[in-house]
Amino acid sequence: MALLDVHDVEVTYRTKEGPLKAAEYVSFQLKKGDSLGLIGESGCGKSTMAKAILRLLPDNGQISGGEILFQEQDLAKLSPKEMRKLRWKELSLVTQSAMNSLNPVYTVGAQIVEAIRTHEAVSKRRAWERAENLFRLVNIEPSHLTNHPHELSGGMKQRAIIAMALCLNPSLVIADEPTTALDVIVQDRILQQIVRIQKEISSSLIYISHDISVIAETCDYVVVMYGGHVMETAPVREFFRHPSHPYSLGMQNAFPNLEDVDSELISIPGYPPDLLNLPPGCRFSPRCPFADSVCQEERPELHFIGTQHGTRCHFPDRAEAFRAQAKLPETWTERPAQGQRGVGA
């Protein structure tokens, strides 16, 4: 039984222009101790999914369908009080803007102690000692616990948040682009720490990023999102050896390849779809070099081509041929005949 089983989840935001479905038919599983990388371009619904799992969507957002089974209970159906008990104790979150997430008027230590004592009946003293150990774990001098957030550097604040996210040994940590605001060297160190500690305390990890190489280094599984849909899901090696969805192929082209350093970087022309005005068929069809008329009309199902490898494409059997063609720059520069929609001029 998976620790987390997200099944056909749909999230809708109420907007002035009408309902906006930021996620639809999103399904993936995660086992205890495993890590899953959620990737996709900006605006494809990654943060939305993270917030949906924690039930932290803003007031205008709601989970409008599907199930989020966590430890065999459906999070979407829990009462606010039951959900509150699970938060941080079992499910913790490191956000994109974690650096600004510390309350400016309290010391960092007080904020970690608050998290511990909200969920566990321990003395302040004991909680503080635990906070000190956590700081050591993320390589911050424990004396910094008495500092206010503005007295710490960005990297330290980020690590403090990571320490806080681990303070209750949660079963699942969701890290939503936890390092984007930091410089590259610090990013890398923090990434390594997250993975090391996650393995140590054997919690599961969902790592959200738009950087495919980061996912390659850190995760056991990959879930690719595009325009609110899961386009491909696979174990990480399988994903890099046999990517099957044209969008995954395009994305792998756009990042430097570690094994094949000489390969040219090719970006996918066009822009992600407008979620208020979606193409009726496959959401990637307007940008897909292999799209057919069926792609524009019918929404593809997630076809499983291996036990754990699924692709939301009408042509899972042509993956082999797609892979070969996708390597050629002209595949991406020559516009497909039916691909005018959504393609940038």
């Binding site: 979150l93 956000t95 997430s101």
Partner: peptide
């Protein structure tokens, strides 16, 4: 953001 974090903390 600190309000969102407070919620996430339960």
């Amino acid at each position: 953001d600190y309000i969102e974090l407070s919620r996430a903390k339960g």
